[in-house]
């Protein structure tokens, strides 16, 4: 894929906006045009959360992704909400610990990864989002690996830089799940 039009979706607190920001930053490090647009307002209060991310060689028109070629769904309502919108040939990654796939599409590549379980088992509580990112990277190579590392470093707040290494471990764990 040349251009990536992605939707990350899940519950508030799962780090949806964070993982989306890592991807956007990684794209920026690759010299791409990028955009990051979160859902906002009462929608967030309801507990669900989603974020559009675009990576492209061209200036980005609408940053609102309607038909993604990558969907990351970290809960069932998000999967149900966006699965029909995914472009044929797109990649869909779900956290299979939390997502019940009731409807499967034949024309997309569906990847199940028990990210929450893996995070719990490997002492990476709260990093299910980053484990998924590792798997997504393995699947799509949406950026150079060192850009991904830089994306993590840029997105982790300065006073929490000690968490960078843990995030990179989570990436590697995700990659290994392929």
């Amino acid at each position: 894929m040349k251009d990536f039009n992605m939707i990350f979706a899940g519950f508030g607190g799962q780090g949806i906006l964070f993982v989306a920001k890592v991807v956007a930053y990684a794209g920026l490090m690759d010299g791409k045009e990028v955009s990051w647009l979160p859902s906002y307002g009462p929608e967030m209060r309801g507990g669900t959360c989603n974020c559009s991310v675009c990576l492209s060689d061209e200036p980005i028109g609408s940053p609102l992704v309607i038909n993604p070629n990558v969907l990351v769904a970290m809960n069932t309502p998000s999967y149900d909400k966006f699965i029909d919108a995914v472009q044929p040939g797109g990649v869909v990654i779900v956290d299979s610990t939390l997502v019940t796939v009731s409807k499967e599409r034949k024309d997309v590549r569906l990847i199940r990864i028990p990210a929450t379980e893996l995070a719990d088992e490997n002492g990476m509580k709260g990093l299910a989002n980053i484990i998924i990112l590792g798997r997504l990277f393995k699947e799509t190579e949406l950026c150079a690996f060192d850009s991904l590392e830089k994306g993590i470093a840029k997105s982790v707040p300065p006073r929490k830089q000690h968490l960078v290494e843990k995030n990179l471990e989570a990436i590697r764990l995700g990659q290994e799940q392929a």
Partner: peptide
């Protein structure tokens, strides 16, 4: 507008 306010870009 809300798009420019809420989005991130370089």
């Amino acid at each position: 507008d809300g798009m420019l306010g809420q989005m991130m870009e370089p």
